[in-house]
Amino acid sequence: MDLALVVGLHLLHAVASLALISVGLAVIFGMLRVINFAHGEFLMVGGYAFVLSAGAGVNLWLAMLVIAPAVVGMLGYLVERLVIRQLRGDVIATILATWGLSLFLVGLAATVLGYRQQGVAPPFGTIQIGSYTLGVYTFFVIGITVLVLLALFAWLRWSRTGLLVRGTMQDAELAAGLGADAGRIRSGTFVLGSALSGLAGAVLAPLAGVLPEIGATYVVKAFITVISGGATALTGTALAAALFGLTSQAAAFLSRPVVGEVVLLVVAIVLLRMLPTGITGRYFRKAL
């Protein structure tokens, strides 16, 4: 019984981690349709912004919840201005440019920060469930993921800017005709997606560590999750994260970790074969 509860919490944590690494990409790729191959590096920069400022004595939560998203948001602003905007509409050029950006950021981090920056230990203690212990930080990751998704949903659903963003994504010309500034909205949405990636990188840093090349660990799974989610980026990403996190971690637990990795890919392939437009291409089409 205790084991079932503990394993259930681990599954939830796996789902939350997957949703958290994907949510920034859900905004940038799912909504803006910008293929950002440097997504993993945005997470990495968020992680570094967190550990560097925490290491410099900044309050842990300020560093994690404010500084890291702000730094990556600013990075996103620059990238949108200097790269994405210039290549708008040219998918191949965007892929190449963001891939180059990814290599550049890894090289920059390796050169400037190298392999000597000390990380941050997971805060909070542990809780006891029967004979098992679980880190309280696990609950924090789950909680913050739920908060981020709910806040994003509420903002898109009920705020005026959320409406403008949705309108611009649906039909940029029509929105522009009604007075919306499509360029600024796209720029702002990209910055939001970047900031969410920075937040994710910082939240996961105490558990995953920060290294210049850590982005590669995240980028593929994030893309698989967002693509499988389908047209309505937010709901789709959350559903896909739940599906992949549960199946792959359950398989890893019942069998071996390698089987877990295989199951994630098999589920993704079967899903996209049956629902080529993703989960929300068929179900929950009215969602966000």
Binding site: V7, A14, S131, Y132, A216, A252, P257, E261
Partner: peptide, 20 residues
């Protein structure tokens, strides 16, 4: 004895098994 592909970074289930 458990073996992990090089891109695995979720160890929750393994840690529970070790605890057991």
């Amino acid at each position: 004895e458990e073996f992990f592909p090089l891109d695995v970074n979720q160890f929750g289930a393994t840690i529970s098994r070790i605890q057991a």
